[in-house]
Design a protein around this nucleic acid. Structure first.
Length: 568
RNA sequence: UGGCCGGUAGUUCAAUUGGUGGAACGCCAGAUUUUGAUUCUGGAGGUCGUGGGUUCGAUCCCCGCCCGGCCAACCA
């Protein structure tokens, strides 16, 4: 069972009856025939970094909506700022979107493919007297923009003639000027109550090669001037972005209303981005984790990036189910990371094969079992799904059990092994602990036990019951593995809230590396990326690159641990 | 400080489009169980931000206030 598997059917079923402000809007548009029955969305990342779990929400939303209403969703790179962007990020983003289970028609779109069209529209605006070249430096421009309660002032260059503007703009394009020397601005209203409307910059000069257009351009469009036009060119109907672009909507509309659109005008809608407790999604902070060596890179299993959670073993289908469950709203919110984990558990519980693995081994010698004998026991691959079959696990005189499954001095309600007590070995025999062997410091290093040959298969002929079933692995047949346990990356539920630095609450124990784990022999053949359940412990993902390295995706619900915790 | 968006169980979202509110996760208890898992059943938990107004009646309409978020890059 690969964690690369996707599940389109359930993705559709989950959203079938969903209703929210976006779906209501789309239904209304469909009913009114606004776009001739077309629904087209887009997911428009800037290729300047890796996608994180927060982006998954936007991806699921845009692609999901299109799928749900029989429309299309374009994967479009908003590559309008050559300084931060690269082909490496383009490749990574395409890969992540596909891994999440979404395929953009067959084309990938780029804002840079529309640079000529945008340029020509900009000249149109100049010709209409709606744009001008400004020579102000950025600080002065900022000062003259005014504030929330103070009006802005017109630039001294605002009233240049159309001819002069055209000439200057063409020379900007031709690369005659240095970076920052001039900009093209929309001529709107320097006293507008919406700051975005105070003569926003449309083009800036950047003598920087672009990862796709090379050095053919010396000017690059700003977000606002680019985005709506990209939407319009592609025939997008519903342009969905996050809440902070709310103020930009008015500008989005203004630009589109002042040029000749190839399609009906798209509309922008804003939703609340996905925030999760105990993580950060700020690119800067994430980059710092990488730079500081806290993690091994953007694809470290502890990272909240798409690549990170993939390595960690989160199934794409679980992420999709999570996104559709939480829905869309305009309320700023932070979801509990536990909710995401419950979706991961849910999916994995249904699909992951069960295996035996001992994380912290304690040797048990079964004195009355023949030395050198290897007996093959049959174990089910899944307790509730017979179609997943069975496999053989070897049983021998010496086995390993989990260190915490034996207590010399058991606390109340402890059901597991202790001297004099009988427990069941999962898929195997009943054993009774008879004695312990200790090292010089008095630590238990070995348990002596006897088994009841009559309990083969885990049932006693006399019907006697045991309080618990524990997992185990043959000492001689086991394979060695390294297992990494993960805790919250940040101890603070809302890292960086208030004026704190999120890195202040970085959890020093977020990763625990267990070197000497012992796994049942079948684990030697496991595929890269596969996720299994080590029974009674949790779900573990085989590393994508390094053999016999496992990441704990998420633990099982643990009543006993909860009980212990409550006592403190 | 001005504009915009939001404020419903612990958390995140629904609903009633004026007739005292549901789900999921979490929590608690029980049943089943060869994973203290899964599954199933039940339970606790809400002055619907706040003060006023309209109304027979307001969580929903109106006004004020409070709280949170976003906006004054030649980033997106």
């Amino acid at each position: 069972m690969s964690n690369d598997s996707t599940n389109e059917e359930s993705a559709e079923a989950e959203t079938a009856e969903a209703s929210d402000f976006l779906r209501d809007q789309i239904r209304a548009d469909l009913a009114a025939g606004t776009y001739g029955g077309r629904v087209k969305t887009r997911f428009p990342p800037e290729p300047n970094g890796y996608l994180h779990i927060g982006h998954a929400m936007s991806i699921c939303l845009n692609f999901g909506l299109a799928q749900e209403f029989g429309g299309e969703c374009n994967l479009r790179f908003d590559d309008t700022n050559p300084e931060a962007e690269s082909e490496e990020f383009v490749r990574a983003i395409v890969e992540d979107v596909e891994w999440l289970g979404f395929e953009s028609s067959d084309t990938i779109y780029y804002a840079s493919d529309y640079f000529d069209q945008m340029y020509s529209w900009a000249e149109d605006l100049i010709n209409k007297g709606l744009a001008y070249v400004d020579d102000l430096d950025s600080e002065t421009m900022s000062e003259m923009r005014g504030g929330f309660t103070t009006p802005g002032q017109n630039s001294p260059f605002r009233e240049r003639s159309i001819e002069e503007n055209l000439d200057l703009f063409r020379r900007m394009k031709a690369g005659e000027f240095a970076d920052g020397e001039r900009v093209l601005r929309a001529k709107i209203d320097m006293n507008h109550e919406n700051m975005q409307m105070r003569d926003p910059v449309m083009y800036r000069i950047r003598n920087t090669p672009h990862h796709r257009t090379g050095d053919t351009w010396a000017i690059y469009p700003n977000y606002d001037w680019a985005h709506g036009q990209e939407d319009a060119i592609e025939g997008v109907t519903h342009s969905i972005c996050t809440l902070e672009f709310d103020n930009n909507r008015e500008l989005y509309d203004w630009y589109q209303n002042n040029i000749d659109l190839p399609f009906e005008k798209p509309n922008q809608y804003e939703f609340a981005r996905l925030n999760l407790t105990h993580i950060v999604t700020s690119k800067r902070k994430l980059a710092q984790l990488v730079a500081d060596g806290v993690v091994n890179g953007w694809d470290d299993a502890a990272m909240p990036t798409i690549r990170g959670v993939r390595r960690r073993g989160y199934p794409a289908s679980a992420i999709r189910a999570f996104c559709s469950h939480i829905g869309v709203a305009k309320t700023n919110s932070v979801r509990e990371i536990e909710l995401l984990e419950s979706f991961v558990r849910d999916e994995l519980n249904a699909t992951a094969l069960r295996r035996s693995g001992v994380l912290r081994p304690l040797k048990v010698v079964i004195d009355n079992y023949p030395e050198g004998q290897v007996e093959m026991l049959t174990a089910a691959n899944h307790p509730n799904d017979e179609s997943l079959g069975v496999r053989d696990v070897p049983f021998t005189r010496e086995i390993y059990i989990e260190r915490e499954d034996f207590e010399e001095d058991p606390p109340p309600k402890y059901y597991r092994l202790t001297v004099g007590r009988e427990v069941r070995l999962r898929y195997g025999y009943f054993i009774t602990a008879t004695d312990v062997v200790k090292d010089a410091e008095g630590n238990v290093v070995e348990v002596r036990a006897t088994y009841d040959p009559e309990t083969s298969g885990g049932q006693a002929p006399d019907g006697r019951k045991v309080k618990s079933t524990i997992h185990w692995v043959s000492a001689s047949e086991a394979v060695d593995a390294t297992v990494v346990l993960y805790d919250r990356l940040f101890t603070d539920e809302h890292p960086g809230s208030g004026d704190t630095d999120p890195l202040d609450s970085l959890n020093a124990d977020a990763k625990e590396v267990l070197e000497g784990a012992k796994l049942e022999p079948s684990m030697a053949k496991i595929a890269a990326g596969e996720v299994v359940q080590f029974e009674r412990l949790g779900y573990f993902a085989h590393d994508l690159d390094q053999p016999m390295l496992f990441h704990r995706t998420v633990g099982l619900r643990d009543e006993w641990a909860r009980l212990q915790k409550r006592k403190k």
